[in-house]
């Protein structure tokens, strides 16, 4: 029996039309694979370069002396290359920024997602987006001209450029991403949970903090990861407000981060000093990978729990 309409065509692969289509399919697959490989290739290249450039100095200085040495004096007659101050400063700085930024950003997100009137919410969300777009160097400038003298006057310290200034600047910088991601996470919580809670006699605030927030946990954790990533990698803004002396970290001391250590000396460096800076970059890189892995593991664990 013949069917009216389209002429019947055999389903064989030998068919010309099918061959052409298959070729296009393969080409496109190949192209996407290539693009993906380029991306992966870049990452591998950077990793390789960092390792190759960073290892020689570590070998010469000695791993323990490098990682745990407390004195950094790269151009002294008797140079010392201990980066413990930088490691600790980066850790404390990021932790401080997270400690301030996460609760602030998160509570702001709860307010915007649950409590704010639509008009206010629009205005505040625009402000947050604007904050997200401000470049680091502007943060640094405002920090240098306003925050640093401010800290000096407020706390009666001789000089305001300090770890505290850096922490405050970092906290403000990570706010927008934390707020935005948290809002998305909160809005994704199904309404049924909130209804059930209210029907049991809980107040709206109780509902938000005992049901919505725990349900949005993984989204909020993602926000924290974003914040940590930005804070630990920030260079420009921090360099303008933190004083840049290679001291062990203290809230009101002038400090140097892993990032600013590389940035401030790279231009003038030569020889072992320069190689040591590459090693710092390598350490920073490993740090970031470690933090990402740890947070991923933590997220996985809490999901299964």
């Amino acid at each position: 029996m013949e069917r009216a309409g389209i002429a019947p065509r055999p389903f064989r692969k030998g068919d010309n039309m099918a061959k052409k289509k298959q070729l296009v399919e393969n080409l496109v697959h190949g192209l996407f694979l290539l693009l993906g490989l380029i991306t992966v290739g870049c990452v591998l290249l950077i990793t390789l370069y960092l390792v190759v450039s960073g290892i020689p100095a570590i070998r010469e200085i000695g791993l323990a002396d490098f990682l745990f040495g407390r004195r950094w004096a790269s151009t002294a007659a008797e140079p010392a290359y201990g980066i413990l101050p930088f490691i600790l400063t980066s850790i404390y700085g990021t932790a401080g920024a997270i400690l301030i930024g996460v609760p602030l950003g998160f509570l702001c997100a709860v307010y915007l997602a649950k409590m704010a009137q639509p008009g206010i919410r629009n205005i505040m969300e625009s402000a947050v987006s604007l904050l997200a777009g401000i470049p680091s160097v502007v943060y640094g400038l405002v920090g240098m001209l306003v925050l640093v003298p401010g800290i000096r006057r407020l706390f009666h310290v001789p000089d305001g450029a300090s770890l505290l200034a850096a922490i405050l600047v970092l906290a403000v910088m990570i706010l927008p991403s934390i707020i935005k991601v948290s809002i998305t996470a909160l809005e994704a919580v199904p309404r049924e949970y909130e209804e059930a809670s209210l029907a049991l006699g809980a107040t709206p605030v109780e509902t938000w903090f005992r049901v919505s927030v725990p349900a949005a946990k993984s989204g909020i954790a993602a926000a924290v990861v974003l914040g940590v990533g930005r804070a630990i990698g920030e260079t420009m803004a921090v360099m303008m407000v933190s004083g840049n002396a290679p001291n062990m970290p203290d809230l009101f001391q002038s400090v140097r981060f892993l990032t600013t250590a590389v940035a401030s000396e790279m231009a003038y460096s030569a020889g072992l000093q320069q190689q040591a800076l590459f090693s710092i970059a390598l350490v920073l890189f490993l740090f970031i990978m470690l933090i990402n892995a740890a947070l991923k593991a933590f997220l996985k664990g809490s999901k299964e729990g």
Binding site: D159, A245, S264
Partner: peptide, 10 residues
């Protein structure tokens, strides 16, 4: 090598 800088600017 003996200076005790509070801030090292670039």
């Amino acid at each position: 090598d003996a200076c005790q800088y509070r801030q090292e600017l670039t």
